[in-house]
Design a protein around this nucleic acid. Structure first.
Lengths: 140, 140
DNA sequence: TTGAATGCAAAAAATTTGCATATTG
DNA sequence: CAATATGCAAATTTTTTGCATTCAA
């Protein structure tokens, strides 16, 4: 992966310590809500960053494609590094159960999106909703 | 698909006119945020329902598996009928572009989830995030 | 009846925005 | 320097809760 500063500059943005720290925190946490990320940043030794800066940093990093986010639980976006080795979340609408699966299960979907639209899908950490075996039987 | 009242009762819940109207509004709208759904319900001729009731009704209907929701734009869950004939959303993290594709592109993924977990995935209206062709080139 | 559901209004979250000030390039 | 980013605090927006009241079963 290339240099953060260069990537930011390529988009007319600037490299700041806050952005570096937010990015580091996301990588360190694996997954985290904006609030958790803010806490992690505050705990890295430096001064705390304001909530708005965390939001703005995450937005900037998302535009660069460096971080992504998912809505596993509906209230609370969870951010992660785009390149983080990952899984796919499977969320049950009935009981809230959350399962994980290797990304390979979505390989074909990703390939099709690339073929048809030239779209680079980031399925890592994506959440697929539905009903788990138990709820599925209970609801039929 | 069975009767709404029976389904609710099977879960110890009750059939109310508000729940019927919320369900009807979701079906009529196709897609809608809780707020839009509340407006649609208010416009159906009956009395307006309170926001909290809309939230509670959507939650109840989701538990039954009758409605689902997606986060196309991150702020604002969009609800839809689980059975509504639909598409898959493709959302670009860079520019916000939203595309649509037939559900078939995810057939294999759905089949795998069923095989491996007995999970009934509702990929309809699901949103796959990533970078569109344009942003992809701009960011590389 | 009896417990579940509703309506309201108040309370919480979770974000976003305006602006003066500090920084990067 | 000029333009972008940050910090704060205030303003929004979105959801959730407490409770008295109403309604379904």
């Amino acid at each position: 992966m290339s240099d953060l500063g260069a990537r930011l500059r390529a988009r007319g943005k600037r490299l700041t310590s806050q952005r570096e720290r937010v990015l580091a925190a996301v990588g360190h946490l694996g997954h985290g809500t904006p609030e958790e990320i803010a806490e992690a940043v505050a705990a890295d030794g430096g001064a705390a960053v304001s909530a708005s800066t965390v939001y703005r940093a995450l937005e900037a990093l998302s535009e660069l494609g460096l971080v992504g986010h998912t809505h596993v639980d509906h209230r609370a976006p969870s951010y992660h590094l785009a390149e983080h080795a990952t899984h796919l979340h499977v969320v049950c609408r009935g009981c809230g159960w959350v399962g994980e699966l290797p990304l390979e299960v979505a390989d074909e979907l990703v390939a099709r999106l690339d073929d048809r639209l030239g779209f680079a899908a980031d399925v890592s950490h994506a959440a697929v909703h539905g009903l788990c075996r138990t709820c599925r039987e209970a609801t039929s």
